[in-house]
Design a protein around this nucleic acid. Structure first.
Lengths: 256, 256
DNA sequence: TAGTGGTCTAGACCACTCC
DNA sequence: GAGTGGTCTAGACCACTAC
């Protein structure tokens, strides 16, 4: 053991790069400022472009950079706190809302959603009991400060909106509003929620101004009424720009 | 316009690969089953290994695959639902808990945490008012089904645990338990919470059995007592294996 | 020691934005 | 058309695991 310990745990280059660039962002750059392009940066640090990109990808994942094809890489503003709390036990669309209903179609829900809609809170789900048919699928978008932050698919079985009158002349948006309005007539008993990491589907990505596969936070909400699951919402939030809040923290982000 | 529309939006190869492999996982593989190695798969699909890896990375991000160096790529089990709800307004460590306190040190908190600790709920934070000195930093680990799912750093100012008696002979773990015990003497008025995407720091990664930079869900909790922020918790959950629940959904995951 | 995934290179071409 | 980030290739070597 006469040798000096050189690099007992040699740090990957991209990890070191990430640290160096991250520190430079804090001290030498302003929010919105544009960085040198990738080829320039790679040359400056003496690494291959792919290696540099690995570092930039991490920084983008952490919400510190924003990259746009054809434009460049800019320093991202701090993440926006988006309230996702069970606000006053409301149905979606009730009260003043940051959501905007854009469309509504009728479709057979994905199996995972169908299973959630099948679950009855008051008795065991019997195998094969009442297969879930087509449901209303309301499409909504959420914006904050002029920026689209989330796209939602709200699944509402026809049974949950018995009073809904559908005319052939109705546009998708009018139908969406009608479904939301009727939904609010039901007594809302509770909701439960789950958050997980996902990657944006092509349609969500387009509306969130991201590339397909971009990381998103998927918030699944089950709305309970009269012992049943009256509706299921699957909302995808931009993971790079959003911090989901369940209360009133709202002020600062904790980087990791 | 006499040409047939060929590929108006040519799909990237890795995106197509991800779809193909994802479907194969559903139909041809069991949970825990080991996939062919990356060189083999790349050859089979006629792409470079880097391209194949891009597809595998996405599937891992979505919690559908698990990759371990030196071992191989296996089909991941469905994500575990982990309850993160504001359970009965409890202090950390109260009641039966899935958390295990492992250590406690005294340190100067990161600036972001310091700012959260500075914020007083009952009056405006005056600039320069009472700078935050060293705080107790309790380290805890959370396990489910024998699997480590989260690592937490709990920051507790000494002012929040005035009754704590520290002896030089105390181990880190004993000190951690002491801090938690004293914390529970304070009246807990509320807590608020935020969830965002991050990447695992080296120490967290090690305890979560992941590589540094692995995607994690960072849950920041502020504990309020007597109009002050009595403690701040920063917990990092494995994003690949966890689904955070805020209620009692718990049964199924919605893939995206 | 053999086999795995992780890192890295030095190129190439493509899709997009802006001028 | 010039410049950007996004995709892709065909290699190489390294770190880790298991036998």
């Amino acid at each position: 053991m006469g040798t000096t310990q050189l690099e007992s745990v040699p740090e990957p280059k991209y990890w070191h790069l990430k640290t160096v660039i991250g520190e430079a962002l804090d001290s030498e750059f302003e929010v919105g400022e544009i960085l040198p392009n990738e080829r320039e940066l790679a040359a400056r640090f003496g690494v291959a472009r792919a290696t540099l990109r690995q570092a930039l990808e991490q920084l983008e994942l952490e919400g510190r950079l924003q990259r746009r094809r054809g434009v460049g890489t800019t320093v991202a503003p701090p993440r926006v706190g988006v309230d996702v709390s069970t606000a006053q036990h409301q149905w979606p669309g009730a009260g003043e809302d940051t959501w905007q209903a854009v469309d509504c179609t009728s479709l057979v829900p994905p199996v995972a959603v169908a299973r959630l809609l099948d679950l009855h809170a008051d008795h065991d789900a019997e195998a094969g009991a009442e297969p879930v048919g087509p449901v209303y699928a309301v499409r909504r978008l959420r914006a904050t400060h002029g920026q689209a932050v989330a796209a939602e698919q709200l699944y509402v079985p026809a049974a949950s909106v018995p009073g809904l009158i559908v005319t052939p002349a109705m546009t998708g948006q009018a139908l969406a509003r009608g479904v939301l309005r009727e939904l609010q007539r039901l007594p809302l008993e509770g909701q439960d929620r789950a958050v997980e990491l996902g990657s944006a589907r092509a349609d969500d990505a387009k509306e969130l101004d991201r590339l397909p596969g971009a990381p998103v936070l998927v918030v699944t909400t089950r709305y309970l009424s009269e012992g049943r699951t009256a509706a299921v919402s699957v909302a995808t939030y931009r993971a790079d720009t959003c911090r989901l809040t369940f209360g009133d923290v709202g002020d600062l982000q904790i980087a990791s």
